[in-house]
Design a protein around this nucleic acid. Sequence first.
DNA 1: TGTTCGATATTGACAGTGTCTATATTGACA
DNA 2: TGTCAATATAGACACTGTCAATATCGAACA
Lengths: 197, 197
Amino acid sequence: MAKPNSFHHGDLKRVLFDVAVSLLDQHGVSGVTIRAVAREAGVSHSAPVNHYKDRRALLTAIAQAQFEIILEDIESALLKTPTNQKDRVEVFADAMIKFGFRYPHRYQLLWRGDLIDHEDPQLLSAMDKIYDQLCDEIDRAAPRAKVDRDTVAVALWSMVHGYIDMRLSGMFAPLDDKETGKPRHRAMLDLFLTVLK
Amino acid sequence: MAKPNSFHHGDLKRVLFDVAVSLLDQHGVSGVTIRAVAREAGVSHSAPVNHYKDRRALLTAIAQAQFEIILEDIESALLKTPTNQKDRVEVFADAMIKFGFRYPHRYQLLWRGDLIDHEDPQLLSAMDKIYDQLCDEIDRAAPRAKVDRDTVAVALWSMVHGYIDMRLSGMFAPLDDKETGKPRHRAMLDLFLTVLK
DNA sequence: TGTTCGATATTGACAGTGTCTATATTGACA
DNA sequence: TGTCAATATAGACACTGTCAATATCGAACA
């Protein structure tokens, strides 16, 4: 597909995407500028407009892809987890936290409603799939819970997101559990999962 | 203090701060540029440097002030709440959520570690006071809980922050509780507070 | 084969930004 | 009155996103 020595690049859209993700990982979202991406890809500063309408479109595409990656992470982790176990709910939290700490700048982009198009159907669909997956597992873990399923789902996702976001913001020190020695988020999840009983 | 017709403004630092907060409320943090603040205050684009070293210093000062406002909100609400009641823990969550929805852009600034100096001692001190206040109330509500106090505190703050942040990001619809008719966050808090028993 | 045309890339421009430097103004104090 | 530190200004620089005008290419069609 690549046509190295030609005026037309041939695979520029993919290259732009990859370069942008690389810049995101290295320098955070402020490092992902249209011009920097173009420079890194070896094209002129306004070549990208043919593939991504503007910066927002590029960042939205990246965010969507990350939600899809997270969903895959969850699904593949669930395959290794016995059914009808409370652990399966924890898989959601673990995958989210793991991704957040591994790719902090990507994670933070997911919730930057000022930078991405948070009404993009594909983006919302990718997020909804994760939410639905979470709800399924909550139903499986506690079919007849007193509180309704959506409350549990929103509460868990809120707690997980809030923890990651505060940690990544740099304002919250790790604060490991002195008694158990485990990272704080493990104790938090144990605490939360008692409500499923 | 103000000296209207003089070269030296006399109270510029305060004016810059107020203008910046106003721009923040109206247009979000991207609207708070040094030059826009200066324009609005009627001074040259490089006048602010005498009072705030750079944009980060200005935003850090604003963030710190907001943490102090939130602490005041919590303290004044606690005065109206009977001691030795579980409700007192809820006061923390209520104040945070109320502030978040009332001043969304201010709230979002609090956790923008890329824009503010998240190691600023005054900023951290303002945040720590809120955390300490929360811990006090948790101890009061459940003196001998099985899980340790910090886990409960971090879990609750995470859940509250995560909920606000996701809602403000625009990617999470309100999703009110269909059964009770109450907003989701009320049901979430009820759910969470069962762990204090 | 030659031509047209849509897709793609380039160049240049514009208004905006943060921040730096050099310069000017001012009020207070010696 | 003169000096000096605090404060304000003006100008410059290197960035940014986005737009308009132009150039190049490849493929489809005559």
